[in-house]
Design a protein around this nucleic acid. Structure first.
Length: 485
RNA sequence: GCCCCCAUCGUCCAGCGGCCUAGGACGCCGGCCUUUCACGCCGGUAACACGGGUUCGAAUCCCGUUGGGGGUGCCA
């Protein structure tokens, strides 16, 4: 294939939808795989949406994912004159005509004529003049079929009689996306249009415009399978968690997200699913994309994310988790990253970073998202702890010789310098072993000590955190727990 | 209603006429490891929607049925 040129053309809605992100990714993978180019075009038919905020809401998540583009962002609203000229050309050539009918009027006519709801070319021969509030409609052929050659779906044909004369220019003079799409794709030299299946039905309209404008052969199309939720319905803003930025905010790694997105509707031939982007670029192609809808499965995303978290070095992990684990660090302003060098160095001066760094391997194997890190280490980083009632009852009330354990542990720990986690372990476990012998029944020393120090019955291995906590804090907590008995 | 798309384990993918007594991954269930939780390891569960063709041979090709989804706007 000779150097394709694709485009990602989102509408500015204030956030980037995960489905859009997947579309962007597939465009990007295709372009990169074939050594082609990608154009970023913002479909702001409504020029009011061309604000920095709306544009950033698209661009930042793309950058976060690691995607880039060779041209743009271009704005549809900047091309109004060009679109107007194309509309004029269509009207002049007889491919389009003026119409002043409102929705209710159209419905009335249908009813009166006993026709099914829809627009039945009512204004075709009314010979209307242009004017305020007048729209332009495209004259669709009454016979024949329009064929869309789709890389994912093969040949899809639409009977032209099922196509209604659709609006290409609104009453306020702005072009609709069918018109703008055809003109922009042509002018920008787009060779392949890769987008969601929800747009498949609009393709014949765009192709008809394309043809009427004398643009020659249409670009190749590839309609990607829709991303659906557990109910098998198109991911929706209302029901589902669709803003990509929410995933970033919850602690998904961009590498994991991009890897997961690549697996929706596509799979590598060797079945190795977790792999670097470069390899995916190498393996990816549109003709291997599956046509069936794909469930956006949070559980699978979590699995990928934990796998990627485990791959981080301790320093990388601490850098990334810090944002989610610390209350002693100022979050960077929007757009800035804590991973920027100055911010990173500053952050390492806080007390949470060293804790994350020291406990990285233990934490990494337990997290599916970075934001969970806080829950594992708050007893180390915070000043106080809360006791979980159930854990307290199990370890302290029902647990054998809990008071003795705490007393002994406190006494022996008081004599240690807390320089070795292994030694701390030996001391605490030794208490249990010796009591077991003297009492003649199994005494577990870890549960009471754990509850005394952490407030809960389960969590990280205690020894390294004890060392980090320091002797004074450990002894104070053991004493406090004993007093609470 | 009309137009269009889709159909392999619960889920995501592999399979593109014989290698399939259908493979991998996630999930789930069991076991091992472990004086917490988790990781890790081992094992198990589970699918070609249905009916007709075509063919020596079909999960793979064709038709139909059923089921699901998308579109039907002066949204994109």
């Amino acid at each position: 294939m000779s150097s394709p040129r694709v485009r990602f053309a989102p509408a500015p809605t204030g956030f980037l939808h995960v489905g859009s992100a997947r579309t962007a990714l597939f465009n990007w993978l295709f372009a990169r795989h074939h050594g082609g180019e990608m154009v970023l075009r913002v479909e702001d038919t409504d020029a009011a949406l061309k604000t920095q905020e709306y544009v950033d809401a698209i661009i930042e998540p793309l950058r976060w994912l690691g995607l880039d583009w060779d041209s743009g962002p271009h704005f549809q609203s900047d091309r109004r004159d060009r679109h107007a000229a194309a509309i004029e050309q269509l009207v002049a050539g007889g491919s389009a005509y003026y119409c002043d009918l409102t929705r209710p009027e159209i419905e009335q006519r249908c009813e009166a004529a006993g026709l099914p709801a829809g627009y039945h070319g009512w204004s075709r021969d009314r010979d209307l003049a242009d004017g305020p509030g007048v729209v332009v409609r495209f004259r669709c052929p009454d016979e024949g079929t329009t064929v869309v050659d789709d890389i994912v779906r093969g040949r899809v044909s639409f009977p032209n009689e099922s196509l209604e004369d659709f609006v290409i220019r609104r009453g306020d003079g702005s072009p609709t996306f069918h018109l703008a799409n055809a003109v922009d794709d042509h002018d920008m030299g787009i060779t392949h249009v890769v987008r969601g299946e929800d747009l498949l039905n609009t393709t014949p309209r765009v192709q008809l415009i394309w043809q009427a404008l004398g643009f020659g052969g249409p670009p190749d199309y590839a309609h990607l399978p829709l991303l659906v939720d557990a109910k098998r319905q198109k991911l929706s803003k209302r029901r589902d968690d669709v803003a990509l930025d929410n995933y970033r905010a919850r602690g998904y790694l961009p590498e994991a997200m991009v890897n997961y997105l690549a697996l929706l509707g596509w799979g590598p031939p060797d079945e190795v699913e977790i792999r670097p982007l470069e390899e995916i670029v190498e393996l990816f192609d549109l003709d291997a994309v599956k046509p069936a809808p794909a469930f956006f499965d949070p559980a699978r995303l979590d699995h990928l994310n934990s796998a990627y978290i485990c791959e981080l070095t301790p320093a990388q992990f601490a850098d990334r988790a810090l944002l989610f684990a610390a209350d002693d660090v100022d979050l960077p302003p929007p757009g800035a990253s804590i991973l920027d060098e100055p911010a990173r160095l500053a952050a390492r001066g806080h007390r949470t970073w060293p804790v994350l760094h020291a406990l990285a391997p233990e934490l990494q194997q337990r997290l599916s998202v970075l934001s969970e890190s806080a829950g594992w280490i708050d007893w180390i980083v915070s000043d106080g702890i809360d006791f979980d009632d159930k854990a307290w009852r199990t370890a302290m009330v029902k647990g054998r010789a809990a008071a003795r354990v705490l007393e002994e542990a406190e006494a022996r720990l008081a004599g240690d310098d807390f320089s070795s986690a292994d030694r701390l372990e030996a001391i605490v476990m030794g208490v249990g072993d010796e009591l077991t012998e003297s009492i003649g029944a199994r005494v577990r020393s870890q549960p009471p000590v754990r509850v005394a120090l952490t407030g809960t019955g389960a969590g990280l291995p205690l020894w390294e955190p004890m060392r980090l906590l320091g002797r004074d804090t450990v002894l104070a907590r053991l004493r406090a727990a004993r007093a609470r008995l």
